[in-house]
């Protein structure tokens, strides 16, 4: 039983941190004081095999940095990354290459993520060349063709010769997805994959991604600011605020029964295409905007904007994330009283 559960966790991060040093004033240099942007400040979560894990938050909450840490594009300041049962926080060259073969990424802007001078086939083939897959060019191109048909770019040879700018936004994101699939990875980190895509095709891309995920048994980390698509797309949602996860659970639980005041505010602020709201001023329970990450408030980091803040929230430690039962976690001192 214990073993089974462990095998199910494909990806685990423990207390992951990324602090970026910031420029100091002269007096700070002399006093030896160092200041940091604490972009990611102690994030932990588990992702199960075959799960779509959603990381949701506003801009500057650290979700993209978390994604980059996982992709090993940045080195963590602290914490652990465990992938497939192996500590992958720090990897040597060979292990890193291996890791990157298994963990792929889809970027927000599919156009920017492809070299404008490369044809689609070159973009996809490059990954194969890097990882020394396929014996010759012919074999590699066959693999490219297969990957393109997996993402429903049909017929593939029609798209292979094109340059990225000759494709529509949706087609480009499909090609980008194909690139991430071509090595048969175990996990894909998708950073806002549909936010630059027109609404009419957005669902199509998400649908395609989900189909591929089911067919190939992939695991996704879906990073987004958009709660609505997260609800549709993910199996689990983690809400981030200022570098920390404040709430985590199944989408239905988190969205229909939010426990953290921040999640509640976020959900109440989302616009919905429903009639009869035009003449009402919407209740927005929280004021202001996200504070600067160099200067994270003491105590609960949300207390400066929280409508329910009290003495317990303003001093001392951050609230720890705790289980409310039913795999619904929340990091708030007072959530029980709010219900």
């Amino acid at each position: 039983m214990q073993n089974d559960k462990k095998r199910d966790v494909i990806f685990k991060i423990e207390n992951l941190q990324k602090w970026f040093p910031v420029k100091r004033t002269m007096s700070e240099v002399f006093s030896g004081e160092k200041r940091f942007v604490k972009a990611v400040d102690g994030v932990s979560f588990d992702i199960m095999r075959g799960e779509i894990f959603g990381l949701v938050g506003e801009s500057g909450c650290g979700k993209t940095t978390t994604g980059k840490l996982i992709m090993k594009l940045l080195d963590p300041t602290g914490g652990k990354i465990i992938f497939n049962g192996k500590d992958s926080t720090h990897l040597d060259k060979n292990d890193l290459k291996d890791y990157r073969e298994r963990v792929q990424m889809i970027f927000q802007d599919p156009y920017a993520s492809m070299n404008p001078r490369f044809r689609i086939k070159d973009v996809l083939e490059e990954v194969l060349i890097i990882h020394k897959k396929g014996n010759d060019k012919k074999e590699r191109l066959e693999m490219v063709e297969k990957a393109l048909s997996e993402v429903r770019l049909q017929p593939p040879h029609e798209y292979m010769e094109r340059f990225p700018h000759m494709l529509s936004g949706g087609q480009r994101q499909r090609a980008a997805t194909a690139r991430s699939l071509i090595l048969n990875p175990l996990m894909i980190v998708a950073d806002e994959p549909v936010s630059m895509i027109d609404l009419s095709t957005r669902a199509e891309i998400l649908h395609m991604m989900k189909t591929v995920q089911r067919e190939l048994g992939l695991t996704y980390l879906y990073i987004t600011h958009d709660l609505s698509t997260a609800r549709y797309f993910t199996d689990k949602i983690a809400v981030m605020y200022l570098g920390k996860i404040v709430e985590m659970g199944t989408p239905d639980e988190v969205i229909d029964n939010p426990l953290h005041p921040y999640t509640q505010a976020l959900i109440s602020a989302v616009c919905e295409p429903i009639a009869g709201k035009v003449n009402r001023i919407k209740e927005v329970p929280i004021k202001g905007e996200v504070p600067n990450a160099t200067d994270i408030p003491e105590g609960c980091r949300f207390h400066t904007r929280c409508p329910y803040t009290g003495e317990v929230c303003e001093k001392g430690e951050d609230p720890l994330i705790q289980d409310d039962g039913g795999e619904h976690f929340v990091a708030c001192f007072k959530y029980k009283n709010l219900k």
Binding site: L199, S200, A203, L206, R231, E272
Partner: peptide, 23 residues
């Protein structure tokens, strides 16, 4: 109609979002 159907709604459980094929 179809654009509206493709707009995700937060408080409504949908199994599959609609979309408009083509460009």
């Amino acid at each position: 109609k179809r654009l509206l159907a493709a707009t995700p709604r937060l408080h409504e459980e949908v199994e599959e979002l609609a979309f408009i094929p083509g460009t």
